[in-house]
């Protein structure tokens, strides 16, 4: 074999003739190793590219499987903003016993205001309550027909935050006060919304789990056909000393690439769908108030989706290799 013009003299002469070959520097080995990985990536990319129709079809299935949980996630996010704003109007009404003096009411108001969980307290006199009722319902005559104001005075406490727990604590702190006849708060409503939100969260989670499995098997199956198609190559490589990880590498990269491309496709589809939904959804939301805005996909969820696709693809390929790549 011819001597190298690149290798320094003396290093190559005797050795090359005897067949010894372990004279490579760590740097050469490292760059060789990096090149192996680049080759494997290029190979993976080429596999997707050379069969565009097949690839597109399986990518589409992956994309739809990833699209579903993402859609439910976006829907849940838009519902959550309702939850937030309904809780915003959240307050606790303490109705006072008839005949409570204004001084007593003022003292109680001061006491409530001092409570660490209370933001502010409004006093609504019996007269104001009647006026509000007449105004709001248009049934002022009904009150008049009672021959006296039947509505009690009340104190309305606004908690410092929106947590149901906070509201309950405030209620419990003052409900037993002798001046108070009744406490009203929309706990049931709040809890119902809370459990609805929890349900959507769980649904997203369940969909992610089930459809992740689907992605795993779709990509696993595509990789299986690749393995079968490269049977001869794998046999030759095994015979001339390829390690299992060397043989596996292009398939793993291919799986990861399929997952990533599938996720990217899902992301594109999602964006298009949201574009389609944005206008009617915004119109619907406008009925409930200006503060509601239609929310699309956020950056964090997008990155999660792409990373998830990549990881699932990798795992699908690994699963397939563990079943279909023969032992050396």
């Amino acid at each position: 074999m011819s001597n190298s013009t690149r290798t320094p003299p003396g290093k190559n002469t005797a050795r090359s003739q005897t067949g010894a070959k372990r004279g490579r520097s760590a740097k050469q080995r490292f760059s060789g190793w990096i090149e192996q990985h680049i080759d494997a990536c290029a190979d993976a990319l080429q596999r997707v590219w050379t069969q565009p129709l097949n690839s597109l079809m399986s990518l589409m299935v992956v994309a739809i499987a990833l699209l579903l949980p993402a859609l439910v996630y976006v829907a849940g996010k838009n519902m959550a903003q309702f939850g937030g704003s309904l809780q915003n109007t959240h307050r606790i009404s303490f109705y006072l016993q008839p005949g409570t003096s204004p001084e007593q009411a003022q003292a109680l108001q001061a006491l409530m205001t001092d409570h660490p969980l209370v933001d502010r307290v409004e006093f609504i006199s019996s007269q104001q309550a009647a006026a509000d009722f007449a105004n709001w319902s248009g049934l002022g005559d009904v009150i008049d027909s009672f021959g006296g104001n039947p509505l009690p005075a009340s104190l309305e406490a606004h908690p410092i935050d929106m947590a149901t727990d906070t509201a309950l604590q405030i209620r419990d702190a003052f409900a037993s006060d002798t001046a108070i006849s009744q406490v009203v708060m929309d706990v049931a409503w709040i809890e119902r919304l809370d459990s609805l939100m929890q349900l959507t969260d769980r649904m997203v989670l369940a969909l992610i789990l089930v459809l992740s499995l689907a992605v795993l098997f779709i990509i696993g199956n595509t990789v299986r056909t690749h393995i079968a198609g490269r049977d001869a190559e794998i046999r030759v490589m095994t015979l001339i000393g390829a390690t299992r990880s060397f043989i596996s590498r292009p398939f793993l990269y291919n799986g990861a690439l399929q997952g990533l491309l599938g996720a990217a496709l899902a992301w594109g589809l999602l964006l298009a769908l949201l574009q389609l939904l944005a206008q009617p959804a915004q119109a619907l939301l406008a009925f409930y108030g200006d503060e509601y805005v239609f929310m699309g996909m956020d950056l964090r969820a997008s990155l999660f989706m792409l990373a998830g696709g990549l990881l699932l693809g990798w795992m699908g390929a690994a699963l397939s290799l563990s079943r279909h790549l023969n032992k050396p």
């Binding site: 190298s4 690149r6 490579r24 050469q28 080995r29 090149e35 080759d39 390690t243």
Partner: peptide, 13 residues
């Protein structure tokens, strides 16, 4: 192929 398997760098290979 055997050199790729043995992680030779491209020039040497």
């Amino acid at each position: 192929l055997p050199l790729r398997i043995d992680a030779y760098d491209k020039h040497e290979a």
